[in-house]
Design a protein around this nucleic acid. Sequence first.
DNA 1: CTCGGACATCGACAGTCATCAATATCTACG
DNA 2: CGTAGATATTGATGACTGTCGATGTCCGAG
Lengths: 98, 98
Amino acid sequence: MREPISADQAERLAPLLKALADPVRLRLVSIVAASEGGEACVCDLNDAFDLSQPTISHHLKVLHDVGLLDRSKRGVWVYYAVRREVLADVATLIGGNA
Amino acid sequence: MREPISADQAERLAPLLKALADPVRLRLVSIVAASEGGEACVCDLNDAFDLSQPTISHHLKVLHDVGLLDRSKRGVWVYYAVRREVLADVATLIGGNA
DNA sequence: CTCGGACATCGACAGTCATCAATATCTACG
DNA sequence: CGTAGATATTGATGACTGTCGATGTCCGAG
């Protein structure tokens, strides 16, 4: 029976959840998080789905825009990495645990 | 570096997150969870927002449909309660903890 | 410099969503 | 029964979303 979250908190948390509230993006985050070194190349991510390359790129942009994924370009390839603290914060706020 | 979630898991988790991915619904869940006895009357929830009664009713329906809120009618009033196990499961899957 | 490949951006389209006003449903009370 | 209040449903509307094909941008190889 803790205090309800504030309207501000809700406004900040909602976009993060919205970004995660898609099967493709959930799997993207999950695959990246499970990858060696905690990061994955877009080329590999493309292969993991039956979707067009622009669509995957779009989903990655959504996740990156809300701060869930870090992006680093190395040569011709782009690598994404999960920002685990952000993910953990979301989980904590949802779970309502201390 | 655990295993990525399956496509099936993603398809099941996404609707729950989608239901939570709205500032109003986040606050609804939070207010209900923080209420005495773990449940809240719709009349009180209506007063907590600057939205029309049908809109609140709609949001409650969304949350109830995905199984995040329990619903019980007592007399003229309807009470909603948070299904904490469901919420906890979501948090766990997001956090990626065991 | 030019070419090819990796990734992003653009424009479009169909589908979904949040919100409201109006209306329906249900329940207690007289 | 008939009325009043609490909640749900309906229908409409403007905004947003996931997806694609086409195109743009950037980098390394030759």
